[in-house]
Structure formats: C-alpha cells, structure tokens
Design a protein around this nucleic acid. Structure first.
Lengths: 150, 150
DNA sequence: GCTAAATTGGATGTCAATATCCAATTTCAA
DNA sequence: TTGAAATTGGATATTGACATCCAATTTAGC
C-alpha cells in the first residue's frame, strides 16, 4: 500500500527529526534506518527537491530538515517523494457523467482522503514525542510477502 | 496508492454485481469496464482463486459472482488480488523493543486499518444502490437498453 | 461426434520502481 | 593549495507490475 520509497523517506526524516537541528550524512542515515545507502541518496535528493530537507556538501556536511519537527507533517514527506493521488475524475475517462465520481470511486477516494488527513494532521514532533517511546525507529521482524497474481 | 490491478478487479466485480446473478464473458467485462481483456483474464483468475468469482467454460459460460452483492465486500475483492498488508512488526530488523510498533509505523498501520475497515464495511450492493447518485457514473458501454453500471 | 464458445495456463514483452556504482563537483580545514 | 568529506547526477542493473499472445482444455448445442 505504501511504497518502499515512502517507507524509506519517512524513516530517514524521522531520524533527521530526532537529530534536529543537526545534520546527518547519507551514510549515517542509511545505517540508522537500515536503508541501502545508494538508494537512500536518491530518496534524499527527492526530499531535497521537495523542500523537506536541505543538503550541505563537503566536510562536516550532510542532510538536515528545512522545517522543525513541530512544523513538518508526515504528509509533506510523503508528498515530496510520491504524492498521494486523489481520484478526481472517473478512471474510465467517460465524459458523460461530468465531474462526479461513481459510488465505487467515491469510496476509494474517501479512503485516500482519510489517509491524507491522518498524515496531514500528524507532525514529526508528535511521532517522536509519543510517550511510549524514545528512539524513533523500531523493532523486530520483516514480512514483505505479497500475494502473487500471476 | 491503489494498484491498477485492484482498480481493474473492482470494476469487473462491480459490473458482475450489476448483472448478478447472470454470467458475463471476459470479453464483455473487458469492454464494459475498459480493461485490457487479456490482462483482465488474469485478474479474473486471481478473483476465481480467491473465491470471489466462479467461472464456467464453454458456450454460454463466463464469470459470475460466488456471493450475492449484498454479501460481498469491497475488501474481499481487494484481498483476493492484492491483500492489504497491515504492518504487524517493525520493518526494520531491530530486536531491541519487543513486538510493539514504533509511533511512526503505528500511524501508518492505523491508516491501513482505516482503509481496511472502510472497505470491509462496504458491500457491492451498497455501492450499486447508492441513493445519492442519479446517473450511474463510470457508465460504459454502448449497446444494451439497460443502462450500465457504475 | 463435431463445432463454436469460452476459460486456463504458459511464454513472452514492456515499463516503472527499486537498487547499485562511479565520476564530477562542492566544501571545509589544515 | 591541497586533501578528505560529502552531495550530485548519470549510467546501469534488477525486479515486479502490467500487458499481450496463443495453444490447450472444457463445454453447450446442433
């Protein structure tokens, strides 16, 4: 449901928020978040273009947040790398029904709206300050199996 | 956010629900839902394996729903082709915190849970009988005196 | 039984997402 | 000025999602 890239971006930004306002190198972030560093560098470039992080080259440089964790929402991070695509018109492309969605796509878009609202209403600071936890990143287990279609 | 395959599956099942309990051939479904027929046949196979539709070969055969539209939820259709992957354990490999999700993944899984609940709580019959929509949106075909489908 | 209608399954092709590698560039500090 | 640290951008695999094609199989009706 959420792409690998979104997952990586959120992990990296969460770690940057935890370290804010200090910078972290791609290598440090990759190790902390268990993301392939070469790929993470691409994700960070996207976050940079999206105005979520800023980069500093050279010795002592690295990546840091543009905003404070209090001002930065999960949605901004997600949208920087892979914008949530709301369903605006019928995917069948029929003009005969104007701009309204059919009940099916209405439900699907409602679901998207719910996710968007939840993400838009949560800041990185809120995630980090959750009373139950101190370090931002998590624990145990991997299960990425997907049902095969073909 | 939702894959093309899920979109196709939902369109096809919606059309089958509209025609229920009659069967429709893959070709008819493809035309009605504007889905590439060769690929739709694969999607229908997945729906068949998932127990959502049943097939009848030969003359006069085709695809039809296993359940009535009243008993069939959107979630069942989605899960037949591409199960919603809830986040059960932290995607990182860290053993240090037991089984609980970190606040970040807790939020992400909450979003998934919301979608799952919305889809699980909506039947195909509800989608088709939506009181508020007068024109059947995403309508499709040419022929057939009966207005078609979503 | 024969034929036309229909699904099934396998093989294959295409493209975007994921991932890796490296040379070029920027930057700090000694 | 020079060297090490760090990002940037381009080139290049690799993988899975999406899509197409076709031979084999099943089935109804004549």
């Amino acid at each position: 449901m959420f792409s690998q890239t979104v997952e990586y971006a959120l992990r990296a930004v969460a770690h940057l928020a935890y370290e804010a306002p200090n910078a972290r190198t791609t290598e440090q972030l990759a190790e902390a978040t268990r993301v392939p560093s070469a790929y993470l560098s691409k994700v960070l470039q996207a976050l940079s273009r999206g105005g979520v992080v800023k980069s500093q080259r050279g010795v002592g440089g690295g990546m840091s947040l543009v905003k404070t964790p209090t001002e930065l929402t999960i949605l901004e991070v997600v949208n920087a790398v892979e914008p949530i695509q709301r369903i605006k018109t019928c995917p069948l492309g029929l003009k005969s029904h104007g701009v309204r969605l059919c009940p099916l796509h209405r439900r699907m878009d409602d679901a998207l709206a719910t996710v968007e609202a939840a993400f838009g209403g949560t800041t990185l600071a809120e995630v980090l300050n959750e009373p139950t936890h101190s370090p931002p990143l998590c624990e145990v287990g991997v299960d990425r199996t997907r049902a095969k279609l073909l």
